[in-house]
Design a protein around this nucleic acid. Structure first.
Lengths: 200, 200, 200, 200
DNA sequence: TATGAATGAGCGTTCATTCAT
DNA sequence: CATGAATGAACGCTCATTCAT
């Protein structure tokens, strides 16, 4: 299969990770930092150190690269949440750990916004009707958050989850627009207090 | 000066607004609905019914049109807030009226997101360092909101204002990504209850 | 209108015929000599001495150029037949004059085939389902030929017209494939004899 | 020699013809239906179920595949004519049988034209001077037809053969352009009558 | 002021061909 | 023999911007 995710480094002369992975990784960074429309395939190819023509061996269109980036994000999100599940036992500590994960990124977010939120916003405006795969980027953390609130015994778990995620997404928008990383820190602290204040 | 804001229709047959205004208005709509990068100057000229070559009489570059759109947004926001000031007397009713203004747009927001938030996100990623004029789009309502909270006697007025605006921006992001206008309605109700619950 | 067929040379500085015309003319020649697929837009632009980017001011797509070439062919055919109508009085002399027109081109046909027949063949195989405008290229002369046979009092005018055109098209195919211009001359002579031999 | 025509399936599980044969067969179909320029090597490899990289073991260039397709056509034509020689005794019945062979294909011809005529037309326009091998595609049936007319005692056998083939090729062109399979049927009937009417 | 026309750099994409194993 | 991967030149097309009148 062409779309192998494996490295091509076993016994070979080139010791770098697989090209497909490199392409997705480079694309992920560039789409995030420059936006989808401002990023050319040549940019991506160059950043991944892959000849331009070769990109099309792995992805038939630019849209397909975008999709692959979304999938990679989904994968990363799921892994991060699974890691939180492993490292923390109570719902409250899990939620606060997630909050911490988000605020830890305050500096990049002040530059480029939330990687998932801005990607959603941008792709919803593309004419080519990207298949709305981006929705998972926000659904997955909402669902996870909802599970935590439910585990706390809250019957309004879904509403709380939406409130939580909206608070984070909005803070990210303001943080980027105002270029104030501290804003996100501040909102993070508030959210942690809010989580602590919730009762069953 | 060439860039007159006045109509150019005096003595003419039709009473259409001046070309510059038509261009800004068309650009405002298209940038919002299609995104900045997906909108061509030809699109804008066509929508404004202005010959393409003529656009450059009013705006030297595409960036200048974008700036004019931002200015128009700023103007609209200020007018809207001034109107709220006029129509409502107490800070709480003003804040709830603002909330209502925002939720009233739930259907367009579900399609294109918040006109100001998405514009900020998008422009922050452009290579050509747009002069960060977008910041006013969010600063102005934050400051206005802060004034209301302060008038309520709250010493944490700024924090509350940020919390309020973040809640709205985040709700807009989720509303667009999940394509659920009701989500915004729901968050609006919650915000109104929250406002009512605040004490001096 | 952009698609003006007029010259742009009246009082202007450039004294060459209109660019659109030059483009269609160059395209017509190149499509004929090299085939549709082998001819690039850069080829056409170069031959017409028009900057590549400017081609798209006149034609939105390559297909549109091809269509314009077909229309030009249709126009030429109609003018040629009208000229035959004017210059000859009897159906028989008209038909023989047409035969002469065709055989006069024997040398180019030996190189590139019949300009209309080869264009039809090629375009029928394009995936993009060109709107079958090519059919007129053969229908028009068939109909004209049929009118002549009918004027001769033949009730089988349509069949004779098809037979005539098929004879010419087939001769053109063989002439090109075998690279023998004389073959077309010979078939032309035969056709003239055949026309003469027909009775009412 | 590497370019064996034999099967490579001895001892294998399936009895599929050898790769080379499959490639030529797939290429023959695709070149006919889509045209030479519109058919990629990947298309051919896919249709033949041969890995793309492997194609170059059998054919050094795309042109070589085209040549092989022509050779295959030549072979098929010769076989078909030999079969007619075997199955029919008199020249007239042989010629009418050939006519029947051709009209039997009216439906494909209405879609793609004559497999040999369109191939000739197309290849004559390629820049890379294909070695004019296509000429055999039309020469062989002309020569065979000429032999039949000569066997009938006609001294103008060559002219009649050219007339016959031109009639068929032209009918094929019209049939495809006008998309009327019946046109070929009709011309076939006329040709049979014509053959019958010929005297020594 | 106004405008149709022009311009060229660049983009996404294709494909015959080659290479390393 | 076989094959997945690689390569780069070229193609059709777009678009912000400029020009001539």
């Amino acid at each position: 299969m062409a779309n192998s995710d494996d490295d091509d480094s076993i016994g070979g002369s080139a010791a770098r990770p697989g090209k497909r992975k490199r392409l997705v990784s480079a694309a992920s960074d560039l789409l995030y930092q420059q936006g989808v429309e401002n990023t050319t395939l040549a940019d991506i190819a160059h950043a991944a150190d892959v000849p331009l023509g070769n990109v099309y061996y792995y992805f038939k269109t630019k849209d397909e690269i975008v999709s692959a980036v979304i999938e990679a994000h989904v994968h990363d999100i799921e892994e991060m949440l699974a890691s939180l599940d492993r490292r923390h036992r109570t719902p409250k500590s899990r939620l606060k750990a997630l909050t911490r994960e988000l605020t830890d990124q305050r500096n990049v977010i002040a530059q480029y916004g939330c990687p998932h939120g801005t990607l959603c916003s941008e792709l919803e405006k593309r004419t080519s009707g990207t298949d709305h795969a981006t929705v998972r980027l926000l659904e997955i953390p909402i669902e996870w958050t909802e599970r935590q609130f439910r585990a706390m015994g809250r019957h309004d778990a879904h509403d709380l989850a939406v409130e939580f995620m909206a608070a984070y997404q909005g803070a990210a928008v303001l943080t980027q627009a105002l270029r104030q990383p501290e804003l996100l820190t501040h909102e993070g602290r508030r959210l942690k207090r809010w989580i602590d204040s919730l009762e069953a």
